[in-house]
Nucleic acid binder design. Structure first.
Lengths: 187, 187
DNA sequence: ATATTAGACTAATCTAATTAGTTTGACAAG
DNA sequence: CTTGTCAAACTAATTAGATTAGTCTAATAT
């Protein structure tokens, strides 16, 4: 009956991610995950400490995906163009993976280190691109925060539905370009 | 035994808000709320459809508080000063009421209209302040979104812990002032 | 006085998380 | 081979929480 080795590696995390995509972050449960994996719920506790850890795994994975998307967007580009591409890629990821995007934010936030680490990785990319602008180190940090705040703020308010009508794409492009131009544009 | 009229008006919502402040959004349960109110859990169902509605009430109330804080900050001010005060008040509210602030975002988001309506109210204040700048109606909308995105993005990333060290107050002030100056400052 | 009714109650059910304790099958050592 | 061990599955049971059904009581209006 009981086969073995079914739940090794990233199998659990990947199934959880898929489940979150299908049914939404708020509906992720141990029972459904076990069912999806063809296993009884308690079996998962051989691999997980509980649902909190599962949520953290999903969050960390989501941040890694976002990081990859953002990095890909910036590769071979620099300065204003890189920032624009990053912003577009960030927003695209958030809109196309809204449940995963939520998972990055709405969770414990406190204790976990993997999540925070992955969050920093995104910051680092922006920070790197800003190096081109010859800002002081301190300013580089301020503006990296600003860029991310603007982009993240926009997409998360957009997803909650706080931006009624009007051309959201246009708002986004205008704002990002506006921000970039305050950096003292030069390529 | 069973007294009456104990749960009228906003008693339930207020207790829920207090509970969220005390123990965090993620720990709000019907049982704890009933206990706090000195009542048995099922009694709450005479006043609520369930926990979803409770969460929505908390979210809507939080947005109303935020709106009041933001409006107070802007009263008697205009232009750049008003925007700066709004930003400071917004951030102060979020930092001092982080659990309530989360409730605004992390919830259903889809169906509820009270929540969305309260969210719009905050937008309207910003929109009004921007009237002074003589922007086209479309630009006014874009920049109102931008302002809110920047402020909300900053405080929510700050709360998740994505801004490691460094002077966060300074970053915030610098960024908000930078944004305001792109509007073409005039009083 | 008494009928109505809002609003509380008890009892019970359902779903989800989690723990305890048991079984099984792969594999290495005798 | 055949047996000890271990990981990883299992069943059974417990707990917490949301929710529903149906009962009781006290304030109020007739």
């Amino acid at each position: 009956m009981g086969n073995k080795l079914r739940l090794g590696g990233d199998v659990i995390r990947d199934a959880a991610v898929e489940l979150v995509r299908e049914i939404g972050l708020g509906n992720l449960t141990i029972n459904l995950l076990a069912e999806k994996l063809g296993v009884r719920p308690p079996s998962l506790y051989n691999h997980l400490s509980g649902i909190k850890e599962l949520q953290e795994k999903v969050a960390a994975f989501s941040l890694q995906c976002l990081e990859v998307a953002v990095r890909d967007a910036a590769v071979g580009k620099s300065g204003a163009e890189a920032l624009l591409r990053i912003a577009e890629a960030y927003r695209k990821f958030a809109l196309e993976n809204s449940e995963l995007y939520k998972s990055m934010l709405l969770f414990p936030g406190s204790a976990d280190s993997n999540v925070k680490e992955a969050g920093m990785a995104v910051a680092r990319i922006i920070y790197q691109v800003l190096e081109r602008y010859g800002l002081s180190e301190e300013d580089q940090s301020h503006y990296a925060r600003g860029f991310r705040s603007l982009v993240h703020g926009f997409v998360s308010l957009e997803e909650v539905g706080f931006f009624k009508s009007g051309d959201r794409d246009k708002s986004f492009r205008l704002l990002v370009k506006g921000f970039i131009s305050t950096l003292g544009a030069r390529e």
